[in-house]
Amino acid sequence: MRADLRTYGLLARAGFRRQATYRLALAAGIVTNSVFGVIRASILMGAVAGAGATVAGYDERAMSSYAWWGQVLLGSVAVWGWSELADRVRTGDIAADFLRPVPPYLSYLAADLGRGALALLVRGAPMIVIGSLYSGMTFPAGPVEWVLGLVSIALAVAIAFLGHYLVNCIAFWIIEIRGILLAYGIVATLFAGLYVPVHWFPDWLRALAAATPFPSLIQTPIDILSGYAAGPGAARLVAIQVGWVLGLGIGAALTTAAGRRRLEVQGG
């Protein structure tokens, strides 16, 4: 157990350090995040102002907070594509992964948590400052909610990763999966509540979203971190996330095992 923790700890550190290598890309990411934060906050706040006082419980300040917490999460929670596994299956580099005495989904997950941690510190944290100064943000109700909020970010990173991992596993059966990844990304970002809050969805669409892991990616951490959910409500949201991590994790293990039997690495 201790040996495992050390292994995955080092893999997470590698993910963290690997990301830290590319400083220019990080700086560019901060600029992009800020600019889009300003655009999103302005549009969403304008929409609420235009509609009257509140929309589904969101006033202007709550809207601004929603937009900026979204920007905080965006670098860490990789809602958009990750295709490393599919690429490695296609090129055959996956062979190197299978030569290690660890399950690939766990080693990649550890590395992605490290990457997410770095992105949160370097790309996410500045958004809190900029968002607070530009149009204001709200924060967790108390220390418990702060902790739940941070745990919720880590779980969101894991769910985003495992979801992409499962989609990548299709590459064991089909060579070209870029189209599938794109479609997945669009559905995931919509249901995650990245464009508008899931709470704004009509009932039937909200029910549909709730049946997927996607709201756990963005909407859940935002709800906890912005103080929209607190106490037992926040704990319940985190419990749902834990359920998704376990479910998707088991799915990843089974799919990897099945995919390995299908793998066709020809040549080299």
Binding site: A14, G92, P101
Partner: peptide, 22 residues
């Protein structure tokens, strides 16, 4: 094919692999 971490100093790859092999 490489089993090393492309972006990291070589020494870190050895550390990680040693941990992977317990």
């Amino acid at each position: 094919r490489s089993q090393l971490w492309w972006d990291l100093p070589l020494g870190e790859s050895f550390d990680i692999l040693a941990a992977i092999h317990r």
